[in-house]
Simulated scan of single mutants.
Amino acid sequence: MTTVLIVDSDQDSRLALEAQLSASNQFERVLSCAGLPAAERSIDQYSVKVMLVDAEQASQSSLLHQIKANNPELGVVLLQGKTGVLDSATLQELGAHAQTSRLAAPMEIIASVAKALVGRLAPGKRILGKFLKDGK
Results as ranks from 00 to 15, higher is better:
Thr2Gln: 08
Ile6Tyr: 10
Val7Cys: 10
Gln11Gly: 07
Asp12Val: 10
Ser13Trp: 06
Leu17Trp: 10
Ala19Arg: 15
Ser24Asn: 13
Gln26Pro: 09
Phe27Arg: 13
Glu28Lys: 15
Val30Glu: 08
Leu31Val: 04
Leu31Arg: 13
Cys33Thr: 15
Cys33Lys: 13
Ala34Pro: 06
Leu36Val: 04
Pro37Gln: 10
Ser42Arg: 13
Ser42Lys: 12
Tyr46Ile: 00
Val48Lys: 11
Val48Asn: 02
Leu52Asp: 06
Val53Gly: 05
Ala55Thr: 02
Gln57Tyr: 06
Gln57Asn: 00
Ala58Phe: 02
Ser59Pro: 00
Ser61Asp: 12
Leu63Gln: 13
Ile67Lys: 07
Ala69Leu: 14
Pro72Ile: 10
Leu74Trp: 07
Leu74Pro: 01
Leu78Phe: 01
Gln80Tyr: 00
Gly84Arg: 02
Val85Thr: 07
Thr90Asn: 08
Gln92Asn: 11
Leu94Glu: 06
Leu94Asn: 09
Leu94Ser: 03
Gly95Asn: 00
Ala98Thr: 05
Ser101Ala: 14
Leu103Cys: 03
Ala111Leu: 11
Arg120Ala: 15
Arg120Ser: 14
Ala122Met: 10
Pro123Ala: 01
Leu128Phe: 00
Gly129Asn: 06
Gly129Pro: 00
Lys130Glu: 11
Lys130Phe: 02
Leu132Trp: 03
Lys133Ile: 03
Lys136Ala: 09
